[in-house]
Amino acid sequence: MKKLCYSVFVAFWSSVATMLALHALAAEQGAKPAAGAEVKVYTLAEVRQHSKVDDCWMAIEGNVYDVTAYVDKHPTPPSVLQPWCGSEATEGMRTKGYGNDHSPAAWEKLEEFRIGKLAQ
């Protein structure tokens, strides 16, 4: 048991180090989007224009996201996301429709699709 624990302990740090190394290499290759650009403000009416799965915007916690590119990659089928396209989707993000919040990683991922803020 002691040997097994030690082996898994070493394997754990090897895996984490590998992921970090690959991440560093990927960051080196991929160009970062320009920071500091002016934040665009959208009204809910503008968001409502994009209510299809192949053109899907969502307003979540005061920000506006264009998640069209992610709809196919989302773990659940597009039909689950479709009702939230073009609408205020904070509830969907926070509850997944049955009371469970999305994971911290999912929230971080969402930030990649932010296009601006929602007009108050």
Partner: peptide
Amino acid sequence: LLHPVLLAFAGAGQLGGNPATAAVTV
């Protein structure tokens, strides 16, 4: 020890983009 590694691998598949970057985000 397995728990974060498995979830990082799952995140690499779930989140799209570069898998290593997704795993590190998790």
